[in-house]
Design a protein around this nucleic acid. Sequence first.
DNA 1: AGATAAACGAGACGGTACGTCACGTCTTAGG
DNA 2: CCTAAGACGTGACGTACCGTCTCGTTTATCT
Lengths: 190, 190, 190, 190
Amino acid sequence: MTGDRRPGRPRSEATRRAILAAAIDELTERGYAQLSVEGIAARAGAGKQTIYRWWPSKADVVLDAMLDEAASLIAVPDEGSLAADLAGFLVDTFRQRGQRPVLVGLMAEALLDPVFAVQFRDRFLFGRRDALRTVLARAADRGEIAADVDPEMLLDIVFGVLWYRLLLDHAPLDEEAGRQLATLVVRAAR
Amino acid sequence: MTGDRRPGRPRSEATRRAILAAAIDELTERGYAQLSVEGIAARAGAGKQTIYRWWPSKADVVLDAMLDEAASLIAVPDEGSLAADLAGFLVDTFRQRGQRPVLVGLMAEALLDPVFAVQFRDRFLFGRRDALRTVLARAADRGEIAADVDPEMLLDIVFGVLWYRLLLDHAPLDEEAGRQLATLVVRAAR
Amino acid sequence: MTGDRRPGRPRSEATRRAILAAAIDELTERGYAQLSVEGIAARAGAGKQTIYRWWPSKADVVLDAMLDEAASLIAVPDEGSLAADLAGFLVDTFRQRGQRPVLVGLMAEALLDPVFAVQFRDRFLFGRRDALRTVLARAADRGEIAADVDPEMLLDIVFGVLWYRLLLDHAPLDEEAGRQLATLVVRAAR
Amino acid sequence: MTGDRRPGRPRSEATRRAILAAAIDELTERGYAQLSVEGIAARAGAGKQTIYRWWPSKADVVLDAMLDEAASLIAVPDEGSLAADLAGFLVDTFRQRGQRPVLVGLMAEALLDPVFAVQFRDRFLFGRRDALRTVLARAADRGEIAADVDPEMLLDIVFGVLWYRLLLDHAPLDEEAGRQLATLVVRAAR
DNA sequence: AGATAAACGAGACGGTACGTCACGTCTTAGG
DNA sequence: CCTAAGACGTGACGTACCGTCTCGTTTATCT
């Protein structure tokens, strides 16, 4: 019953989507380093100002695009044991490896722009982190995690390895790696 | 018997040092995002061409500057137990936290420029990694690492957490954290 | 018998006046070069479309504003001699010197936009010119103008000097100048 | 000898000429209103920055171009009588009528930009004015100008008519007009 | 009274050009 | 041959306005 419309022409949903799609396309085709607001606008058939009106930087466009398509892709597994849950989470996450260029670009931007870094952390990274934190909490309830173990450090181990391999690309990020890491984390927790 | 002097004016060591120093100064004062070849040259009282003649990109300048001052700072501890060695290594490493802006900048560049990424890995990251690998090898000899554990994954856990916290700055990177991580890694290894 | 009222909401006279006033205000405060349709609309509390609905360009708004307030300010002096009439006309005209920024702006626009130039000539310049032509015609009847003198050239001399000084601002445009010019024109006519 | 070369790469004369030529070409082809720095740069095969490095505005480029080709085109006639000299000067000046678009554009810019107005006056307009002033001074020596006549007003009459017709384009600016105006000015002077 | 219709404010839209910044290359003179 | 200086072509930045296009709302006339 709201009907609280602001005056003036409403934002064009079609344009919004065209911009997000163009951003992803440009990024995967030419890489984050070559990504430009001008390029996105041109490919989307939009004016530059339309982008600047709604997003503070090109990285925010990309982040929005990611979140738009990956919405609620974060499953919280619950299979009864930490080992199974961890392996499930990691295998599931590693499966999305195709997004590497996007993720690497976003991280690069976050490293260069502190303002964007906050967005990146809060809207993207912490979402996944919260999911895994739930898994750990359940494991703790089942007594699978020793009292003297800080769950946050366990989270950092999981995501640390994940991002380290993602960024450096020096070692595989596949199912085998997921199972290996899960085993080690379970042992470390006790 | 003088040796292989090439003809023409020799490279100026003073200028080389001035450029490296200017790069570090600019970076710490204004941040990596604001770093420019032009700025480095101006501050060093050098010509831009002089920089381009010797380094392919500004990131290489910064990397050289890092390596120049951090030369052989990587100690390989050997105190008789994995726990002690790991804790020593981590505490030692975490102590250099003041270099965060530099490290973050280099990583950002590596993410954006694949050519530089190779330099960064080979000349910087893998140096530390080799040091720690030695530590792990010794621990394996002492039977502190189970046979089914891939030491490379242990390395990734250590450096993963390290870089993850360094890049995200969401949790401390202090002695306490070092000891905590060391404990968990030891447990994971067996 | 009211007449041909079209259906729909009638044009708002209040808005019309607000726009004209805003245009003059903006112009005198910030100069013609800084004048923008957006600025006029904002100051008038009007929508841009309302301006574009009624005027083809911002210059037309300014011209309308000028004509609105200067309506029938053109007196046709008739004092019995060309010298007196001319001096009267010039002194009278020069007295409006405060409008210099407006006039200069309109001329600039006319030079850049041929469509507006026609409006400017027909609705503004030629009005004054007709007034002076009447004066000259009377003088011719009195025999004050030689047969071989083209009155149009005399008009161009008067308005030429007027606009030249107005545009260049290199010499005064005061009563003294008005009398001087009148004297010379009388002599030139015979 | 001097040899006072500044260090660094010297300004490119070829580029300078290409820019001036491109400016004139763009102007005559598309008109002053459509003239853009970007267009000039593109046509000249130059970077925008190169234009901004040497000229404060596009109008200054055009002014330079004008002066470059019209250098010392201002002849000072000396035929023994004011009538002959004036007619000569005017006919000569009117002959360059092809430059109308350029002159009109420069004047428009001068009206909009006070900084450029100074350049325009001092470097262009006052050159012609000085030439004619010399002619009048000689006429005064010969007694052709009454003592009570201000020569500056005579100058304004000549240039006023010239520019008035040039800008408004409502009456011819040909030889016949030149002779007519000359006759009137001679009579006005006495 | 209700329907119709134009004008209005607001403001989003696709564009064009602005003037600036830094890039990496080049062209000088001089050590 | 190296260096400092600095001009060059290039390309992207973020901004300002342009003139057009929806919106919901207001204000009149015409059933």
